[in-house]
Design a protein around this nucleic acid. Structure first.
Lengths: 141, 141
DNA sequence: TGTGCAAATGATAACCATTCTCATTCTCAT
DNA sequence: ATGAGAATGAGAATGGTTATCATTTGCACA
C-alpha cells in the first residue's frame, strides 16, 4: 500500500500528507470517510496534517480518479477509494451505515431514459435512504 | 392558487411571506427553485421577504408535505412543489436544467435490492447528471 | 549528493449556504 | 377590537469548504 508509484502515475508528487491520506483509505475499516473523519483519525494517531490540506488532497485524489466523492444527505462530502467498479449506495438514516450494490437492470434503464430525453449521461448518483438492521443501529423500529 | 386554505390545512398560519413563496412556486416557469432564487425573484418584483424567512418557510413547507427538497451537486438545496407523484431527476451539469422522469422498472428493482440487504426503504434519490441539449445551454459539446 | 525552483503545506481568513437570536410585528380566536 | 402567541426581519453565528500567502518540501538536474 501507499506506493509513491500510485501518486506519481496520477501526476501527483509523493508528499507525506498525500501518502498518509491514501494509506488511511487503504487500511481503514470504514470505506466511506469525510474530510473531518480523516482529519480526526490522523490527529488521534499523532499524524498532524492541516485540515486545509486534507480538503485539497481529497479534491486532487478525486480529480485523479483515486477517490470518489459522494453527497449523502448529511450535507458533507464523503469519499471512498475508487475501485473502478461503479456501484450505488443504501444509506441508513439512523447510523449512517452504508451498503454498496450494483444492479445491471437499473443501469440499463438509466441509459435508456437519458437517451430518450436527449441527454448524454455524465454520471449518476442513486442513494437509497433506509433503515438498516445492524444490531447496534440506533434505529428504533 | 395561494388559497389560505392550503396553508391552514397544513397547520400553518396564512402569513404574507408564506403566501408569496407558495404562490411563486405555483406561477414560476421553473419548477425547481433554491432559497436564493426565491429571495431574488421576490425582491426583484418588489416583494421584500427576509432571506431567513425564506429558509424557514421552505423548511416548514417541506415538513408539511407541500414542497420536496432535493440535494443536487450544486451544494445548495433545491425545492419543488410536491405534486404527490414520485419521480427522479436528470440534471444538466452545465445549465442546471432539470428533467423529471419516473421508471417503474427502476422503482421495482430498488425495492427488491433493499429487501435483499435487509433494509426498509425510507426514501431514495436518483439523480442523473448529464449534458442536456437545450439550445441556450452553455454546454460546449 | 547537493541545490534551486516550482509545487505543496500550514495557519488562518474568507466564503457560502443555512440556522439561530431576539426584539418587533402580525395573525387569528375570542 | 384585542391580546397571546406565533411569525418575521436584521444581523450574528455556524458548519463545511475554499482562498491567501508566507514557509517548507519534493525532486529534476547539475
Amino acid at each position: 500500500m501507499h506506493q509513491p508509484k500510485d501518486l506519481q502515475s496520477a501526476g501527483l508528487k509523493a508528499t507525506l500528507p498525500r501518502l498518509k491520506v491514501l494509506s488511511l483509505f487503504e487500511t481503514s475499516k470504514e470505506r466511506h470517510l469525510s474530510a473531518e473523519d480523516i482529519y480526526n483519525i490522523l490527529h488521534s494517531s499523532g499524524e498532524d496534517v492541516s485540515l486545509a490540506t486534507v480538503y485539497r488532497v481529497l479534491t486532487q485524489f478525486e480529480h485523479a480518479g483515486l477517490l470518489m466523492r459522494h453527497h449523502f444527505e448529511s450535507g458533507k462530502s464523503v469519499f471512498e477509494l475508487n475501485h473502478g467498479e461503479h456501484h450505488d449506495h443504501i444509506v441508513c438514516l439512523q447510523c449512517d451505515h452504508v451498503e454498496e450494490f450494483y444492479d445491471a437492470a437499473i443501469e440499463a434503464r438509466q441509459k435508456k431514459i437519458a437517451a430518450e430525453y436527449g441527454f448524454t449521461i455524465h454520471e449518476h448518483s442513486l442513494y437509497i435512504y433506509a433503515d438498516c438492521t445492524k444490531p447496534n443501529c440506533p434505529n428504533k423500529r
